[in-house]
Design a protein around this nucleic acid. Structure first.
Lengths: 333, 333
DNA sequence: TACTCGTACTAGAGCGCGCTAGTAGAGCGC
DNA sequence: GCGCTCTACTAGCGCGCTCTAGTACGAGTA
């Protein structure tokens, strides 16, 4: 920066002004300085910039590398953040890199706020985080934490899915649980409630699982094994999310069970995977773009008015009927 | 930091030493300082740390948000980077955020080196980048750029896939091109060469496309339309990558074309999607973990010995035969 | 006793910016 | 001529840390 200033024959301060796009420099000098900077190959150093001004205007985003729905969210986040003149830092959690580590990385890079995409972490982590900084949790509810919360009305989505299945004549509807995954508890409760409401309480069955393909595959194997021992398959399965649904779909189809002729499968998320399966996955759509927008807006608004209390945004889910759900099978002879 | 120093009754410098895990502090003081820091809630500020020491020990990773293979790579990168005592900053390219922008963000955050995952960008961007910093390109070759390069032997992978198909009796084998996607040119050339080698030159057909599901879907539609006009479908298709293969698979299956009975489909990458399809995708496996490891190692080694010339790592691909490829269909009456 | 040496610690410069408080000069009304 | 305002620019401190060059002191050695 000093080099640029010298070569352009101005002070460092003026170069600074120009690079911040602030008024206070003549158009002529502005052009000259920018040209010189370009020649030298100067680029402002965010670390120093960050240090010098108190604020970093940077939002940190923690996501799970393999969660396809997160990539949809990230796309929305970039768009909205840019619109508001902030920056984004991504930090991924992987099997070998805990959420805590990912978040620490963000904080130590001076993110002013942290957006957690579908965190799986201990509630205590979020509580602590909420006390320390502005935090927004997407999908994952943490009751007493000082954290903004963006999610879809899980109950509503599940209800739509269940009504759809019941309307198609299904009674033996099973649910694969999402474990500690975001929204799982609500989905499970809503599943149970819907079964009760339709008078199918005795048919309710919840399989333990999580939000990965693996749990769908495992549940599929379990169901097949049961069938081979004479227990009928459920006629429909509400999976914990799309990935889980995909795993299940694959396992069943491979074993010769036809979807939806023999079993209907419904997912959750409408990640861009869902329309990929040959038959298309019936699923509950969460609007990733809108969720991202809300999350960013919550973070930014709270940064700019620190006295604001954390808020909650509940978006409407929408059942998308594709090929993986159909009428209940004829009772085979 | 000053607060910690004061409260613990030591100098700032000593606190610094302790937080850098350097020798020069007694065990007793060390414990006391760490305890005090914890009470106050102090955490070192990377921005300042970055600024103060010349080196950031940070590698920037540019990736494409929706490219599932990239998430596999990222996982490997985190692991290797941590082992070497560096940090990672991620920056995603999306439809609304160009690669150039993503890279700029990394550089301005003082990344010492940049790893580009399957860049689609203009060669000139990479050339310029290579002149400015240590850069590693994964999958995408840029002939004259001063950039390390990690990729699999595309030609070898394609050859294995083609030999596999020919062995199964296929002759009318089409290829969906990956457009400007990384490795596409090599794959296309290898496809043509293999057709020639097997004496099938006259059957060769390359469909324009890219590395997304959409191009698979579109090619699928095109093929179906041709069939309806009386032109036979190819008996096998080598897709540009897995995502493209998935799109094709979906479109064909939906239209009642059975895979692999009517058409065999082969992908490329073996991203974790591939085993998801009900029938499993036959594909050419690239070892993401190993690629990630190489890329990180190249970057770090060149950072530590700047006189080193950029290198190239060619990894062996491996054909993984799953359910989407099978013997050539009986000629239908 | 005088000297090295090693350990435990400190003073203070400087990393590359942003920002506040300032100056110099041009233009204008009276 | 004076004071005023406005634009274009500058001096220099400070952000929170690292790092070099030190000091203080006790133990070991001649």
């Amino acid at each position: 920066m000093a080099d640029v200033a010298e070569k352009a024959g101005v002070s460092r301060a003026l170069v600074s002004i120009i690079f911040r796009n602030q008024p206070g420099a003549s158009e002529e000098t502005r052009q000259r300085v920018l040209r010189v900077a370009d020649e030298i190959g100067y680029r402002p150093d965010s670390a120093a910039r960050l240090l010098a001004r108190g604020r970093s205007r940077t939002l940190g985003v923690m996501f799970t590398v393999h969660q396809t729905f997160h990539t949809d969210l990230i796309e929305g986040i970039y768009a909205e953040v840019e619109r508001l003149g902030y920056e984004v830092l991504l930090s991924g959690a992987t099997p070998g890199r805990s959420e805590e580590k990912a978040v620490e990385a963000l904080l130590s890079h001076r993110c002013e706020a942290v957006i957690l995409l579908g965190s799986f972490a201990e509630p205590s982590l979020l509580e602590e985080l909420g006390g320390r900084t502005v935090a927004v949790s997407v999908s994952r509810r943490v009751p007493h934490a000082h954290v903004d919360f963006v999610h879809t009305a899980e109950g509503k989505g599940v209800r739509q899915a269940m009504d759809h299945l019941v309307e198609l004549g299904h009674r033996r509807i099973a649910h694969i649980d999402g474990g500690s995954g975001p929204g799982s508890a609500e989905r499970r409760r809503a599943y149970r409630a819907a079964m009760r409401r339709h008078g199918l309480e005795s048919e309710a069955r919840v399989f333990p699982g999580d939000h990965t393909e693996r749990s769908g595959i495992e549940t599929g194997r379990l169901l097949l094994a049961e069938r081979d021992q004479g227990n009928p398959l459920p006629t429909a399965v509400l999976a914990g999310n799309d990935r889980c649904a995909m795993g299940l779909l694959m396992t069943l189809t491979r074993a010769g069970v036809e979807v939806p002729r023999d079993v209907s499968v419904v997912g959750y998320d409408d990640s861009h995977l869902s329309h990929l399966m040959p038959i298309g996955l019936t699923t509950v759509r969460q609007d990733a773009g809108l969720m991202a927008e809300c999350a960013v807006r919550f973070a930014v608004e709270r940064l700019e008015k620190p006295e604001l209390e954390p808020r909650e945004a509940v978006l409407d889910p929408k059942l998308v009927v594709r090929g993986s759900s159909g009428p209940v099978p004829e009772p085979s002879a």
